[in-house]
Design a protein around this nucleic acid. Structure first.
Length: 263
DNA sequence: GTAATTTGACCGAG
DNA sequence: CTCGGTCAAATTAC
């Protein structure tokens, strides 16, 4: 009943919370790698737990049917079928909002695949900074999408970690300005990051410095401008420049659009 | 020299 | 059949 009124508000707050935690994580983790691995690992775990809590809450809000016990949302391939004409103009956010506003939850019942894997979807300007190192193992061009999807596995995958993730840049240029264009006019490219599996690798290697794929340079290049407020902030965090992508983080600050979702 | 990325081939699911 | 995810050899970066 009340899932369209207050529900959306609560969900927005949760999303905001999620965003803040993610930003905090992006700031903290790269610094911890030089402190000591124990604290870093613990911090990573804590971040993971907090984000997981938030994700679960959002997921439950979406489901709106808490009757089902766990509903281990799982889908091996979270292919978003553009049913009508999703002319790539809109993104998942719009779709989601639309779904939220829609009073009737989709008539189709959820059918879970026989996979036990969970996947967390995240739309962010900073696909890295999750405290883990990734090795790219594939890249595919998805039909209907302008940018290719990159497949990453944890660097220590073959040993401990079986976590994987995919990064796909959303259409940022070409048609009309989607959104997230800062007041200064810099365009922040958004990336859809989907995490599969859990990290079991040692958290000792906490770095989030490199731009691994070809879809990142835009972010870095974007931040090269010097505006008043931004410049000042940059000056403050100069210390981290060696480890952090300051421009990328600034994008996070400016846009503050992070979005987790259980798929 | 090692290690990571690139790229087409391969394969399974729908 | 197509589509998307993975593999693996070649290439590049370090």
């Amino acid at each position: 009943m009340d899932h369209s009124g207050h529900g959306a508000e609560i969900e927005a707050l949760l999303r905001q919370q999620q965003e803040l935690v993610t930003q905090l994580r992006a700031l903290i983790l790269p610094q911890l790698h030089s402190v000591d691995s124990g604290s870093a690992e613990l911090a990573l775990q804590l971040f993971h737990d907090v984000i997981g809590c938030n994700t679960s809450l959002v997921s439950k809000l979406f489901s709106a049917g808490h009757g089902a016990a766990a509903v281990p949302v799982d889908d091996k391939s979270l292919v978003r079928k553009n049913s009508t004409s999703t002319t790539t103009k809109d993104d998942g956010i719009n779709e989601r909002l639309e779904k939220l506003a829609m009073p009737s939850r989709s008539a189709g019942r959820k059918r879970r695949r026989n996979d036990g894997k969970r996947s967390r979807s995240l739309v962010t300007n900073v696909p890295d900074y999750d405290g883990h190192q990734w090795r790219k193992y594939g890249q595919k061009n998805i039909n209907g999408s302008q940018h290719a999807r990159s497949y990453y596995r944890c660097t220590y995958t073959e040993r401990n970690c079986s976590a994987t993730k995919t990064i796909q840049q959303q259409d940022k240029d070409g048609g009309s300005a989607n959104y997230s264009t800062d007041a200064n006019g810099d365009e922040a490219a958004k990336y859809t990051v989907v995490y599969y599996g859990d990290h079991t690798c040692k958290a000792s290697e906490i770095i989030s410095n490199n731009n691994t794929s070809d879809c990142l340079p835009d972010l870095v290049d974007t931040g090269c401008r010097t505006s008043g407020k931004t410049a000042r902030l940059t000056a403050d965090i100069t210390e981290w420049e060696t480890e952090l992508d300051v421009p990328a983080l600034l994008e996070v600050f400016n846009n503050s659009l992070l979005d987790w979702e259980m798929i």
